[in-house]
Simulated scan of single mutants.
Amino acid sequence: MEQQMVTLADVARQAGVSASTVSYVLSGKRSISGPTRERVEEAIRRLGYHPNAGARALASSRSDIIALMMPLRTDMYVPVMMEIALAVATTARSHGQDVLLLTGEEGPEAVRRVGASGLADALILMDVELEDARLPLLAQTGRPAALIGVPAEPAGFTCVDLDFAATGALCVEHLAGLGHRDIAVVGEAAAVYERRTGFAERTMEGLLRRAGELGVRVLHRPCEGGYASLTATLDRIQDERPRTTAFIVQNESAVDPLLSLLRRQGRAVPEDVSVVAVCPEQVAVQAAVPLTSVAIPALEMGRRAVELVMAKARPGGADGLAAAAPQVDLLAPTLTVRASSGPAPAPSPG
């Protein structure tokens, strides 16, 4: 026989109190005496009562939901974004929170809708641009929020991200230390730079600055990824910088095509040309030639974003985004040396 759903009225009868008293115990809106509270809590345990989420939200003015804004774009590497989303969802559950996933490209309108509806107690934004149109509205919601990414002006926002500027610098330092002086960067799709996505711009900023300090020439070419686009990009690089001896790749979908095309051209990795990537560990390890790489700490970024937003949501925590000073949590990059990078080849005679 199917078990009947336990109601708040059932708990009230079991505890010998009114339904409103049970509601007050659940919401904490009124002070209830210790013995009465204990009777209600014992009745809840005995009956296995689980408050309806909607009723709980009405009673407490809380939904126990975090909205995760994760625009799914064709020019972004979705597996990394989903890994971050999984970390957000798992960490949120450990705090008794559920996650509302918003994958559309609505931008400010989605922030406005969530803020006005009370659907979520807090918000986490991904795919942050340097001049992100969502941020002014996010500040107006007054809800606890965190960004996975760093805008150009982070004042008043709580952010977590890999330190992409340091990541770019680290890749150049590694190759320069091996004697490479002409490096080509195979970047993200052109649209990623056109909308000034933070992680891509900051990588190039740090990379170019360090290259200048080390006397390394850098040629940066965006790439859509895939064999056709990579073939055209590689041909262009070889025409423009025929002395290129190393590649830095920040485009997961370009990794396998690049290694394949170099092999077809008879260019051995790393004897003839070195390759360093900014990519997930799994992509680097499973490549045809295990890649020297800086890993994307997706799980840590998602976990930290939830921890930061929950700290703001706790009583006594920072009120929404009101603080003027930014809280920017940058994760230090680690470069793991594998089989794809080696000393620069000796220049050809003449």
Rank of each mutant, 00 (worst) to 15 (best):
R241V: 11
P242V: 04
R243I: 00
T244Q: 05
T245P: 06
T245V: 06
A246D: 10
F247V: 10
F247W: 10
F247G: 08
F247S: 10
I248C: 14
V249E: 06
V249D: 08
V249N: 07
Q250L: 07
N251C: 09
S253R: 15
A254Y: 14
A254V: 13
A254G: 11
V255S: 09
D256K: 13
D256G: 01
L258V: 07
L258F: 08
S260C: 04
S260A: 09
S260F: 01
L261C: 08
R263T: 14
Q265C: 02
G266T: 02
R267L: 15
A268K: 04
V269H: 02
V269F: 08
P270F: 06
P270V: 03
D272E: 09
V273C: 12
V273W: 14
V273E: 08
S274R: 12
S274G: 03
V275G: 01
V276A: 09
V278H: 08
C279G: 05
C279T: 15
P280E: 02
P280K: 01
P280D: 05
E281G: 01
V285I: 11
V285Y: 00
V285E: 01
V285A: 00
V285L: 00
V285F: 00
V285Q: 00
V285D: 00
Q286E: 00
Q286I: 01
Q286S: 00
A288G: 08
V289S: 10
V289I: 05
P290K: 01
P290Q: 07
L291E: 02
T292Y: 12
T292D: 10
S293F: 14
V294N: 13
V294D: 12
A295F: 00
I296G: 04
I296M: 12
I296H: 10
A298M: 09
A298I: 05
L299A: 12
L299D: 13
E300M: 09
E300W: 04
E300A: 11
M301I: 05
G302Y: 12
R303I: 10
R304N: 15
R304F: 11
A305P: 09
A305M: 12
A305L: 12
E307S: 11
E307G: 05
E307M: 12
E307H: 14
L308I: 08
L308H: 08
V309C: 09
M310T: 13
M310Y: 06
M310E: 15
K312A: 15
K312W: 07
K312S: 14
R314C: 07
P315F: 03
G317V: 06
G317N: 03
A318T: 13
A318F: 10
D319T: 13
D319N: 07
G320M: 04
G320R: 10
L321T: 01
A322G: 07
A323K: 07
A323E: 15
A324G: 03
A325E: 03
P326G: 02
Q327A: 02
